[in-house]
Nucleic acid binder design. Structure first.
Lengths: 248, 248
DNA sequence: GAGTGGTCTAGACCACTGA
DNA sequence: CAGTGGTCTAGACCACTCA
């Protein structure tokens, strides 16, 4: 029989994806709105569910943006977000904005990384913006031992306390960090903060910060997978690194 | 009206996801097969499509594994794959296996990174295995200028030629690298090599390798998002890095 | 209130796996 | 071959946005 090039016909939704994808490249501009789903489905002669399967994949790839009640628009290229040489929490260039702080027991997975048994830790909630749009949310777990200068029970709550913890963290001698990236889906809380629906795909970045021979903090950051490209700066010579951090 | 805690009921599929997710934690072991989709849908009193929405998200999170003709099984924890201190292509610890090599025009995006205008480059196809299972595929683009020792038109094809290119690359003086991670979906080719369906979510890792003041090569690697957690080794003191690479 | 995408149903048939 | 997940249909209603 020779080589089997196309034993089985390509599923409709995949063909649709190709066709629409090409149309996006040639016939649409960034921000332009597509015809609505019922219209598109009719035009291609498929059920709406089938069309949606194609649109979902294009959205996953960051080519489309869909918003309930509004419509489907052509997405801009993903923004590069520097993660690799992310600054130590509390350092002047730290791109995160503190929102809140409280004390709580970390999830067991985090507790293991921190090596603090059943002790409660500081939990900071932070947000990372790009052009005023949220691109990530973060939970930063800081053991009490990492911020000895902080009065154990401080009445200051919320953002003010968060900044106090960060200030103390900034005084430690950074010794490096450790990172893992994996795919996840946004929980209800994260989805709200990222202005997405729960279940949207996100990139989960877990970072361990080391100082003075111990794990000083663990960060679990949730980046919008549709709009973000995580970048890890060059660690060699001859290449420009982001220059000085700008005040903002 | 006070605080609105639950204005709208949670969608069924999301509730299903929670319920099944908890069941996975408590009542199933890794590798165990779940009842089939029709059975589960009936048991939960929902349409099969609704059930599938829940299963899809659980699969996205790496908690389930579904295979046509076989069934749905509980997935093992994701494997950590070291990416950060990935060795220079052709170095002795390089975790990739060369499969093929040919000369071709790179995609325009890659051509821009390489800075080789319209010139064809070497394109190596490589695979990365973990425990004998493929976790990633890669296209490595190597400009002719990076491998001057290679006879321009060498009759040796396939894996042999790929190894020749890598050998030459290994002679360069590495000056660092540059990396970006984003979400994508597997193309037909990648899907086949990764033993997944086309369109499955993947982590796209684009790496620039620098040597002698120029971009020596660009790698576009496609990691299975369901089974992989990309790790970026510590760059500080006091933390163990992967020891010597074992011959394999 | 009109129009959008999001959820859901109850079917059907197909492609693939493994016994 | 029987049983699995994958694709597809033609509807329906809901939640949300914005004029």
């Amino acid at each position: 029989m020779g080589i089997r090039l196309q034993t089985v016909p390509e599923p409709k939704y995949r063909h649709l994806k190709t066709v629409i994808g090409e149309a996006l490249d040639h016939e649409f501009r960034v921000g332009e709105v597509l015809p609505n789903e019922r219209e598109l489905a009719a035009r291609f002669g498929v059920a709406r569910a089938t069309l949606r399967q194609a649109l979902e994949q294009l959205e996953l790839e960051g080519r489309l943006q869909r918003r309930r009640g509004v419509g489907t628009t052509v997405a801009p290229p993903r923004v590069g977000v520097e993660v690799g040489s992310e600054n130590w929490p509390g350092a002047p260039c730290d791109p995160w904005q503190a929102r809140d702080a409280h004390r709580a027991l970390p999830p067991t997975a985090v507790a293991e990384l921190l090596g603090t048994g059943d002790e409660p830790v500081h939990v900071l909630t932070r947000v990372r913006l790009d052009e005023a749009l949220p691109v990530a949310t973060e939970l930063l777990y800081v053991p009490a031992a990492s911020v000895p200068g902080l009065s154990a029970i401080d009445a200051a709550g919320g953002a003010a306390r968060a900044r106090a913890v960060l200030r103390e963290l900034g005084h430690l001698g950074p010794e490096g960090e450790d990172r893992a990236v994996e795919l996840g889906s946004a929980g209800a809380e994260d989805a709200r903060r990222l202005d997405r629906l729960p279940g949207s795909p996100v990139l989960l970045v877990t970072t361990r910060f080391f100082a003075e021979g111990a794990t000083a903090a663990v960060s679990v950051a949730t980046y919008r997978a549709d709009t973000c490209r995580l970048t890890f700066g060059a660690d060699g010579a001859g290449v420009e690194i982001a220059p000085a951090c700008q005040a903002s």
